[in-house]
């Protein structure tokens, strides 16, 4: 028990928590935007892979870090365009299209990787984003180094989460977007286009997922390797449910999840790790996500028109 307490009060632990949370925050907000507009985006896992690769590849081929983030975002948006074209105007199964987009995006990434770097055994590293401590704030004990001594991409993640909450609940656009996911016929009656709103939400959301992926290569691991996204996309879908489709709660969920993930990594190195196989620790985050889903699904208010294609003129 003392070991766990020691871990929980250390600043390095919380720094790691925020670092683990950042990519989840981007992707969870991206998924949340899609789902609030009524579209389940199962392309998330593959889009994160694309983003991770595109951002890394852009920097590796000589682009700056921020242009690299932009490239990642655009590549995610391209797959978002594909997803939304099939699911919104054509109204195809969001499950099947989403899985198809994940498979296609992952395959496209691996294919391009092999084409671009045919002979490498270990992928080249890039110069990643470096920590940029916020003056004054970063000197607060424990919280300072954890929250305000991160890379700029983490600050961008905070901003994206705050902006998502603000736009969804405080602007006419957000109202229209939420309405598209609750009662699309009413949106259409107001003279707004459900198709445009939903497609826009999926494209923007997919862009954010890709930036989440790019965080992994540009701010965490400094390199791209296969399987690096490793189910994070699916976990973000669980986080959206856990957060009851609200940005604030979902962000809190991402923080809790990250804390748990950071804790299990550290517990592997303690006395407990010598008795329990390391696979059990690695399973915990996935098991926790399932548990969170089971607990939260009962009273969650699912957007009423989630996964319901909108067909103008149909009754």
């Amino acid at each position: 028990m003392m070991e766990i307490l020691d871990i929980l009060v250390s600043a390095t632990f919380w720094t790691a928590v925020i670092r683990i949370m950042s990519p989840l925050l981007f992707a969870t907000m991206g998924e949340l935007i899609c789902e609030r507009a009524g579209v389940l985006n199962l392309g998330i896992e593959g889009i994160m892979v694309v983003g991770a690769f595109a951002g890394w590849m852009a920097v590796y081929s000589g682009l700056g870090l921020w242009p690299g983030v932009a490239v990642a975002m655009l590549s995610g948006m391209a797959f978002g365009l594909l997803h939304s074209t099939l699911t919104v105007p054509f109204g195809l199964s969001q499950h099947v299209v989403g899985l198809g987009v994940t498979l296609l995006a992952t395959a496209a990434t691996y294919f391009t990787y092999r084409l671009a770097l045919p002979q490498v055994s270990s992928p080249p590293r890039i110069q990643p984003f470096t920590e940029w401590p916020v003056p004054v704030l970063s000197e607060i004990p424990v919280i300072g180094p954890a929250v305000f001594s991160q890379t700029p991409l983490t600050y961008l993640a905070y901003a994206v989460a705050a902006l998502t909450a603000w736009v969804l609940y405080r602007t006419p656009l957000g109202l229209a977007l939420r309405a598209a996911g609750e009662n699309p016929a009413a949106v259409e009656a107001q003279g707004l286009s459900v198709v445009a709103l939903r497609m826009g939400a999926v494209i923007l959301g997919s862009g954010l997922m890709a930036v989440g992926g790019a965080f992994l290569t540009m701010s965490a691991f400094n390199s791209f390797f296969f399987e690096m996204v490793n189910g994070r996309g699916w976990i973000c879908i669980a986080l959206v449910v856990f957060g009851a489709w609200r940005p604030g709660k979902a962000a809190l969920g991402a923080l809790l999840f990250a804390a748990f993930d950071a804790l299990q990594i550290r517990l592997q190195q303690t006395g407990l790790g010598q008795h329990v196989p390391y696979q059990v620790f690695l399973m915990l985050p996935y098991a926790l996500s399932i548990l969170a889903l089971v607990v939260m699904s009962r009273r969650a208010e699912v957007p009423a028109a989630l996964m319901v294609p909108f067909n103008k003129g149909a009754r």
Partner: peptide
């Protein structure tokens, strides 16, 4: 419980 099986079956793969 109304838990979406897409995510649970996907996460079970990893477990």
């Amino acid at each position: 419980l109304g838990v979406d099986e897409v995510v649970t079956t996907l996460l079970l793969n990893f477990i």
